[in-house]
Computed example of a mutant assay.
Amino acid sequence: MDNIAGKKSSLTWAVHISVVALVLLWVFPTAGLLVSSFRTSEQIISSGWWQSLTPSEISAQHRAVDPDDHRISDGAGYRVEGAIFAKKSKIPEIISWGTSSRAIDAYRVGEVADLGEGETFSIAADGSYVWRGNDKQISGRGQRFFITALVPPEFTTDNYHFVLFDENNRQGMTKAFFNTLTVTIPATIIPILIAAFAAYALSWMEFPGRSLLIAAVVGLLVVPLQLALIPLLKLHNDIGIGKGYLGAWLAHTGFGLPMAIYLLRNYMVGLPRDIIENAKVDGATDFQIFVKIILPLSFPALASFAIFQFLWTWNDLLVAMVFLIDSSGETTVMTRQIVELLGTFGGDWEVLSTAAFVSISVPLVVFFAMQKYLVRGLLSGSVK
């Protein structure tokens, strides 16, 4: 009875748990990247993205304005007034403050700190402070103080405006976005066209050495990409197409063809033989059979490989670094632009989060729009 067909395996629960775990491993980082791209740098540093809807506690050092330029005489002495926070709708709630780095929480809001020599310092709930001196003139540098405050949740689109549209900085990713499209679209279409013709020939055309070609294609699947980079770059430089879009297109085409031919050939060889033989009896040529019968029937496999090639080319950095070397930045793609942002804005996590999410947004749209074809294409040929 244990071997009755149709009975569910006892390991079904393990498969379900594994699928859920894999989905969560992908969803959580992506959601965190999206949330962080709308947060300010202070909030990213002070709290995790999962705490973005609750107030976050921050500690910061401030210094009062220069007393030589802002002191005011009030009859009994002098005072300096200022504000910690700029005027905005959401003002952080100050919990405690102090005048020494060893005791940053020594005072509460409204309490007065004695600085000695007749000087006092106090901070109000709205972040305004008053520095007083009795019978002597306040001078020197502004008084240093520390605050601990609860910052209310805040989201902004300034990060996206800076990354995409700021004309005053050279780190804008708009140009890199279009450069990536310029590389990715041809590098996806060209190998599909070549691989479709090759897969049809290896599936339905009889010629000497066909089995050897199929074995060679399978063997090329395991060739490391890094092994061919230097010889290929030397060849491109010798024929004059290196360091440009054409060289990158051909490199991505060459590296993607083995997988494309293997995937499409496995799909086409499983198509009904009767349809093709009937077309030949009716006088159709191989080209007509390929265009009018094979291509429409092979659309799931074509779409499946298109997803793989698009994602791999869009997220590629190695080929771009080798074949798109340009000191002027005219051919810089998004992956390389993010690497440059890491060097320029290494501490500005909001900029890096925004740039990274902009980079993955297009692959996400492509994947979810064509995922049904991905599954059909991968399962092609598995059941006869």
Results as ranks from 00 to 15, higher is better:
residue 3 N to L: 15
residue 8 K to P: 00
residue 11 L to F: 15
residue 12 T to L: 13
residue 23 V to P: 04
residue 25 L to A: 14
residue 26 W to D: 02
residue 46 S to E: 05
residue 52 S to E: 01
residue 54 T to V: 13
residue 66 D to P: 01
residue 69 D to S: 11
residue 71 R to C: 01
residue 74 D to F: 14
residue 77 G to I: 05
residue 85 F to E: 06
residue 92 P to V: 05
residue 103 A to L: 11
residue 111 E to C: 01
residue 115 L to V: 09
residue 122 S to N: 04
residue 126 D to K: 11
residue 127 G to Y: 06
residue 129 Y to I: 05
residue 133 G to Q: 08
residue 143 Q to E: 11
residue 146 F to G: 02
residue 146 F to M: 13
residue 154 E to I: 01
residue 156 T to E: 03
residue 164 L to S: 06
residue 179 N to W: 04
residue 179 N to T: 06
residue 180 T to S: 15
residue 183 V to Q: 01
residue 183 V to E: 00
residue 199 A to I: 03
residue 201 A to F: 11
residue 209 G to S: 05
residue 220 L to H: 07
residue 226 Q to E: 12
residue 234 K to W: 09
residue 237 N to I: 01
residue 242 G to P: 00
residue 244 G to T: 02
residue 247 G to H: 08
residue 248 A to E: 00
residue 251 A to M: 13
residue 255 F to I: 12
residue 255 F to H: 07
residue 260 A to M: 04
residue 264 L to D: 02
residue 267 Y to N: 09
residue 267 Y to P: 00
residue 273 R to Y: 06
residue 273 R to G: 12
residue 276 I to Q: 11
residue 280 K to R: 15
residue 281 V to K: 11
residue 282 D to K: 07
residue 285 T to S: 15
residue 289 I to G: 07
residue 298 S to P: 00
residue 300 P to S: 09
residue 306 A to L: 08
residue 314 W to G: 01
residue 315 N to H: 14
residue 317 L to K: 05
residue 319 V to F: 10
residue 327 S to T: 03
residue 337 Q to M: 15
residue 344 T to W: 07
residue 346 G to K: 12
residue 350 E to W: 12
residue 362 V to A: 06
residue 366 V to L: 15
residue 375 V to F: 12
residue 382 S to Q: 10
residue 384 K to E: 09
